[in-house]
């Protein structure tokens, strides 16, 4: 098992390195450079020279990449062009805020999705399934910003239960943040639930058709026991990985949702920094998003390895 763990870790690092290369290469391939983009019409003379010097743009790309990568590995993300501050300082609290938003949504969305998905799968093509699948199709296809705007219209404007936008300092404490994120969490959890639910449902339907479930049913095992003891463990295990893969999709949703609710997270920051044409900051945030994705997938893989009886038994096999 240790071998699998190490291999998985190496592959995650490889992916991260590759993403870093791509993010750097895209910035290089774009017309102009970070300074001409940032300064726009002011990009001339001393101002341009100073800016280029501050980013070492006079050096060849390969050399800059090595420097950039070395600094990254040490946790130094460089300086923001617009804010003239180290990027770690700007990104830190916002990274935390996005993680809070995502975690709360996941804590609500994942259990809900599993319960509803199993329910829909077990009662396939019956009324509960039609309702659950129908709503989840809507949640997956209606754009996040439409859902979010609808929620604002109903709960913030008509009923006035929750604030429509978050007005908080970026470094507010968790206690201050929580009451403010009800609507963004609902939006994100809604979309997340829909995606995971469909995967769970398909997997449950597969498992319900398997030989061992038929066998158990024929043996006269009570239906409830068949579902909970025989079907669920093997149906849910493979969904963990697929769920983690949908995170990439959900991260795009986070950007939109944060923007709609003006939530002080990485999403609003990346949009702001694109408007500011602050390329170093944009690159750093893109990397952070990739890091979140890779971390979630790594955790999912580790979970699967820990929960999978086949791989668990290999431990004793290898040990002996």
């Amino acid at each position: 098992m240790l071998k699998i763990l190490v291999r998985r870790l190496v592959s995650a690092l490889f992916t991260l390195a590759f993403v870093a290369v791509v993010v750097f290469a895209v910035a290089e391939a774009l017309p102009g450079d970070a300074c001409t983009a940032y300064l726009g019409r002011l990009a001339q003379g001393e101002r341009l020279d100073n800016c280029r010097a501050s980013l070492d743009l006079d050096q060849p790309a390969a050399k800059r990449f090595v420097h950039w990568a070395r600094d990254l590995a040490q946790g130094d993300l460089g300086n923001s062009l617009k804010r003239k501050k180290p990027i770690e300082e700007i990104v830190g609290p916002r990274f935390r805020n996005t993680v809070i938003l995502g975690t709360v949504a996941a804590l609500i969305g994942i259990p809900l999705a599993i319960v509803l998905g199993v329910f829909a799968g077990v009662y396939r093509d019956k009324i509960p399934d039609f309702v659950i699948s129908g709503v989840s199709l809507l949640a997956m296809t209606i754009p996040e910003f439409v859902i979010a705007t609808l929620l604002i219209f109903v709960f913030a404007i008509s009923f006035q239960w929750f604030p429509a936008v978050t007005i908080l300092p970026t470094d507010a404490g968790i206690r201050e943040i929580l009451p403010n994120i009800v609507l963004p969490v609902i939006t994100l959890a809604f979309v997340m639930t829909a995606h995971i639910l469909r995967i769970t449902r398909a997997s449950v339907i597969d498992a319900m058709h398997s030989e061992y479930v038929k066998m158990a049913t024929l043996k006269g095992v009570p239906f409830r026991r068949v579902v909970f003891r025989h079907m669920l463990p093997s149906a849910l295990l493979p969904t963990i990985n697929i769920v983690a893969l949908t995170i990439a999709w959900l991260l795009s949703g986070v950007v939109v949702i944060e923007k709609v609710f003006n939530y002080p997270g990485l999403g609003t920051l990346i949009i702001q920094s694109i408007f500011d044409r602050d390329l170093p900051l944009v690159q750093a945030i893109a990397l952070m998003f990739a890091l979140i994705y890779i971390a979630v997938n790594l955790i999912a893989d580790l979970l699967v390895i820990l929960l999978n009886p086949k791989l668990r038994s290999q431990v004793s096999g290898e040990g002996g």
């Binding site: 992916t15 590759f18 895209v26 893969l245 999709w249 991260l251 990346i270 944009v282 893109a286």
Partner: peptide, 14 residues
């Protein structure tokens, strides 16, 4: 590795 980059972000960047 490419799939690890959220699509919308990349679109935004480019």
């Amino acid at each position: 590795a490419f799939l690890a980059i959220p699509g919308l972000l990349f679109l935004l960047l480019i």
